[in-house]
Structures are given as structure tokens and as C-alpha cells.
Amino acid sequence: MQAFVDITKTISTFAIPLLILSIVVYGAFKKVKIYEAFVEGAKEGFNVAVRIIPFLVAMLVAIGIFRAGGAMEILTAVLSPLTSLIGMPAETIPMAVMRPLSGSGALGVMSETIAAHGPDSLIGRMVSVMMGSGETTFYVLAVYFGSVSVTKTRHAVPAGIIADVVGILASVWLVNLIWG
């Protein structure tokens, strides 16, 4: 198993330098003025980063209020009778709620849950699958739409939330099926 970890680590380490190398070499081969082209594209980097700030502040502050005030514990208490019906332990609810809201928050919740229940317990496996299969939906929505100043997000939010809920349900179902 250590070999697999090493291989994936090696691939991840090589991926970016190799990608840059191949694009630059291909560009040179195609007679692109690579240095000029790079600088021209890179100029935009600052603008894009600055453009997303207001959207990110709005999103992270609202999520920050929700987390710091203890609303998460109440949500867990409210949801636990429902989730126990589908074989989802109450201990995994904070993970399920945090996953779409905050990447660092979700990673923190995962570490705490695994420290409390062990990585190879049913709960530990379930939070791992949820973490590995989910994405920080609200961060992505804020940053991506923010970068092009879109405020009317139409059906992206409901569809994203439905996909998140289905991902959580699928994680619960699979973990119970494989290790339950």
C-alpha cells in the first residue's frame, strides 16, 4: 500500500512541471513567441484575483458566522433523527454539512472525527469517503461566478446542492455496503 501512496505522490509531483514543459516546448515548436505570450496571459492574474475578493468576503463571512456561533451543533441535533434512518451515524453530520461550505473547515472536521473514532472505523471511513468525493461547492460558486461578476446564478446553486446531497447519500450507502 505504501507503494501506491508513493506512486500517486510521484505522479502529482511530476504532473505540473511536465505539463508546463510540454506546453512550452509545443509552443516553441509551433513558432509561438512563448515569452511574450506568457507575459501577456500572466498580466491578467492580478486582476482576476482582485476581482473575486468581494465575492469571497461575502461568502466566507456568512459561513464564518454560521460556524463560530455554534449553529452547526444545532443542525446536527436536528438532522440526526433523519440521518439515522438511512444508516448515517450522527458523528458524520458535521462533515456532511461542512464539506460544501469550507475546505479547511471540512479538513479540520475530518481530522477531529478520525482522531476520535479511528481511521478504520465505519465513521472514520465514512468521513474519508465524504471528504474524498465532495467539493467546496460554495467556494467554487463564489470564486467562479465572482471572477466574471455574475450575481444572478440561476439554476447553478440548486443543482449544485442536489449533487452534493446525492454525493453524501451515495457515500453513506457505499460505506455501509462495503464495510457495514
Binding site: Y26, A37, F38, G41, A42, G45, F46
Partner: peptide, 17 residues
């Protein structure tokens, strides 16, 4: 900012090629 500048630069090369 730094990562954005890097990838937008690389993407520009890829685009022109």
C-alpha cells in the same frame, strides 16, 4: 495571484500554439 499569473501565462502559450 502568483498561481493565477503562472497558469494564465501557460494557457496563453497553449492557446496561441
Amino acid at each position: 495571484i502568483g498561481i493565477m499569473a503562472l497558469w494564465l501565462g501557460v494557457m496563453k502559450i497553449a492557446e496561441q500554439a
